[in-house]
Amino acid sequence: MTEEATQADQPSITALLAAWGHGDGRALDALMPLVYGHLRALGANILRGERAQHTLASAALVNEAFLRMADMEKISWNDRAHFFALCARLMRQVLIDHARKHLASKRGSGSEDLPLHEAAAEPDRRHPDLLALDQALRRLAERNPQQARIVELRYFGGLDREEIALVLGISSATVTRRWRMARAWLCSQLRGYDESSSWAPARR
């Protein structure tokens, strides 16, 4: 348990979050690096070892810390949803950074481009390769930013349908529909259904 580490920061994150919830934009600026720091620690846990990012054996532990970052009881659930949304964005960042570094150290270069077919060569039925997913999400965002956001909130943030609906201000039925299409599209991109992926090229 990473309790000691998290407890020290707890009041400040909570306070900032509350301030943010009351419309204080600067609170967010202060909040981001704090939360990011925490999430980096979590990300390191997640990405420890070769394939650990897919097994997440320590997920329960991680989750615990994740929740203790802020004193949830003192924050309205509306704010909490937005907090998790924020975490989702940051978690994506953290995980991608880690994966990229890991790849770079493995290759001895800083190359960012991972060809899609390489990612598809080692298919995971449930979890896509992180870097490939990140790239695909960028392409998705160029087509429909909201769908990319839904994926981020759900996959990186663990938000459920209702929470996503709340954060994005759409109905939960819409969340379900757009998620299904986004997932199918990502699946086709990441599992190599359509390697040319030429349809609807992103706007440049």
Binding site: L42, I46, Q53, L56, A59, A60, V62, N63, F66, L67, M72, W77, R80, A81, F84, M91, L95, R125, R126, H127, P128, V151, R154, Y155, F156, G157, G158, L159, D160, E162, E163, L166, R180, M181, R183, A184, W185, L186, C187, S188, R191, Y193, D194, W199
Partner: peptide, 28 residues
């Protein structure tokens, strides 16, 4: 392509990379 992917996407990205537990925002 989308429909074929959809038909086989069961389980794909269903679990969040960090599953949350014990916190349902929908219920106070």
């Amino acid at each position: 392509t989308l429909l074929e992917a959809d038909a086989t996407a069961d389980g794909f990205m269903d679990e969040a990379i960090i599953p949350r537990r014990g916190e349902t925002l929908g219920e106070p």
